[in-house]
Amino acid sequence: MGIQEQYRSEAAALLSSGEVKLVIGFGAGSTADRRRPLFARTPEEAEKFVLDAACIANLSTYLVAEGLLSDGKKVGVFLKPDGIRSVNILISEAQLKPEQVVILGYAIENGKDVVPLEGCNISDFSIGEKIRSHTPPTHVIEAAEKIEAMSAEERFEFWKEEFAKCIKCYACRQVCPMCYCRRCIVDVNQPQWVSTSSHTLGNFEWNLVRAFHLAGRCAACGACDRACPVNIPLRLVNYRMGKEVRSAFDYVAGENSDQKPVLASFKQDDPETFIL
């Protein structure tokens, strides 16, 4: 029995036993190489789940939908390691209760083989060491190094050009599991801190706010990058912020669910490089 069939029957069993009220997984997409999220509430619906190397989206983002978990019932979800990492961050930020999430874990190896991950509760997945030693895809590192090698002026020009494409559709925000605020700062209009129009200043404001709000919180799933309709390399911004946080505080977001938010908590030996 392949992993797809195995997980279909596991999902069906979870639903028929009543342990979970919903399983979030993948279904067939609009083209052969695309998958779309499938929300199964009955064992029959669970038979439609697809699990293959095209299932790359981070489904944890649906867990923070308003009201989904407020009844205290459990939800099953298909997650790759980056999704598990997101769940760790969401738990540490009190957006999820660990006992409400049943994880159907899988990993994609060499870009084609789908293998199961042992366990079903978040505490079963000790991913700390793995994500510390995990290196992002080569193309991400190469692109980041290219930008890091630029002078400040060149870099500014580069991002000005990239952000000029931004149409303020906020797809990056909608797809990101960390953007769970019921009201985003860009939607505050009394006063209007962030300009809503898509000019250079407004675009910079939004993208910089987004970068800072994700510093020390990003699971590096790349969903923002894939969601962007104008192909701004958003994950490079997050990659750099993650690197900064790691070098300053030796902190890697989502290692476990007991972490304290790095930018909100203080330690005696925190570096004070900002004090001149």
Binding site: S70, E93, A94, Q95, Y180, C181, R182, R183, K260, P261, L263, A264, S265, F266
Partner: peptide
Amino acid sequence: STCAGCWGCVYACPYNAIEQKEIRDRNGNL
């Protein structure tokens, strides 16, 4: 109405002045 309950402010407050508060409806449901 807009607080997401992430408790970042609770950690950040140097004076331990921020607490967690439950909002319930009139039937007492959280």
